[in-house]
């Protein structure tokens, strides 16, 4: 097996951290097989009202924006010079995958006290209606696993990410993380969509993670991993979903098991771990042990995984 980074440079060399303009930073490298790569993250503040209005009309976006919408932010993996392949993980593309106006959006999960709330509301204010076109307020970017440009598309595969390569104690040449959007769900929980990347001498890994907590109801983790070993000619993508009850995770918070109390509990408890997507995900079974593409339930967690790959055919 040969294939490693021959030369690499990080960019940019200096930057103004107070800039409100989008800043792109990343790594460019050439492998020993001559493949040319450029992986970068673009970061800027959340969009202002004018930028939102522009985006709404230019993309015909219908979903109301999440509270923190980093509309310029994205992670880009480009092998364009060699194979023409570019994969983007962008806030805008992800938001376009959120259900809007559909039956599914209407049936999306509700907050814990919705039933009693709705009954009271109907009794007192029967003529007040649900908004005309509901959207998935959890901002689950259904089926979003990156935007692919280039001559090739992903095709189903039995290949898996080489976990052993990732476990090796290789130096990390570049790491970064970018938040695409985040919403606190009116303090009924939280959702975040983040993309991160690490580049090692013989491979790289990109992770797009959507994390959702609805207090008293559920947790959801949707991951998309892109992996490429430089000795291979494919990029492997593993897309997984995990969902479990709120109480299952609550039971893992130090301080003993518990059930959702609506919080009126006056003795108090530190539940801030429940904001940490990585902590919650680590406490769930790993869906990547599932073979091929499939679904399963393990330890109270409903999971699915799909695998596909993209071949990097050298341009003529």
């Amino acid at each position: 097996m040969t294939g490693a980074i021959a030369t690499h440079t990080l960019f940019p060399q200096t930057q103004n951290i107070r800039s409100t303009q989008p800043i792109e930073s990343g790594i460019q490298f050439t492998t020993t097989t001559g493949s040319q790569w450029r992986i970068s993250v673009t970061k800027a503040p959340i969009l202002n009202a004018e930028q939102m209005d522009q985006l709404t009309s230019s993309k015909n976006l219908q979903v109301p924006y999440p509270e923190m919408f980093f509309g310029f932010n994205k992670l880009t993996m480009s092998n364009e010079a060699t194979s023409g392949v570019v994969v983007d993980f962008s806030a805008v593309d992800a938001l376009q995958c959120v259900e809007f106006g559909s039956t599914e959006a209407m049936d999306s999960v509700k907050v814990a006290f919705s039933k009693e709330w709705t009954e009271k509301s109907e009794k007192l204010h029967g003529k007040i209606k649900q908004i005309a076109k509901p959207y998935d307020w959890t901002y689950t970017p259904k089926k979003y696993s990156g935007s692919v440009k280039g001559p090739q598309q992903f095709t189903t595969t039995e290949s898996k990410i080489d976990v052993e390569m990732l476990k090796r104690n290789d130096p990390i040449l570049w790491y970064d993380e970018v938040v695409l959007y985040e919403d606190e769900l009116g303090d009924n929980g939280s959702c975040t969509l983040t993309a991160r990347v690490r580049v090692m001498p013989t491979c790289f890994l990109i992770l797009l993670r959507y994390f959702l907590r609805v207090d008293g109801v559920l947790f959801r983790v949707h991951d998309t991993r892109l992996f490429h070993a430089f000795h291979s000619t494919t990029v492997i993508r593993e897309t997984s979903t995990r969902e479990c009850s709120y109480d299952r995770v609550l039971g893992k918070v130090p301080g003993g098991a518990g059930v959702f109390s609506g919080g009126a509990n006056s003795s108090g408890r530190d539940l801030s771990l429940l904001n940490k997507g990585d902590w919650v995900a680590q406490g769930m079974p790993d869906p990547l042990y599932l073979e091929g593409s499939g679904k399963g339930v393990a330890d109270g967690v409903t999971m699915s995984v799909e695998r596909d790959e993209l071949s990097l055919v050298v341009k003529k």
């Binding site: 959006a105 209407m106 999306s108 509700k110 907050v111 006290f113 919705s114 709330w117 709705t118 509301s121 204010h125 007040i128 209606k129 649900q130 908004i131 509901p134 959207y135 998935d136 307020w137 769900l185 009116g186 009924n188």
Partner: peptide, 9 residues
């Protein structure tokens, strides 16, 4: 008018 949030409360 008033509307109900899609969150269900």
């Amino acid at each position: 008018d008033f509307q109900i949030s899609p969150r269900g409360a």
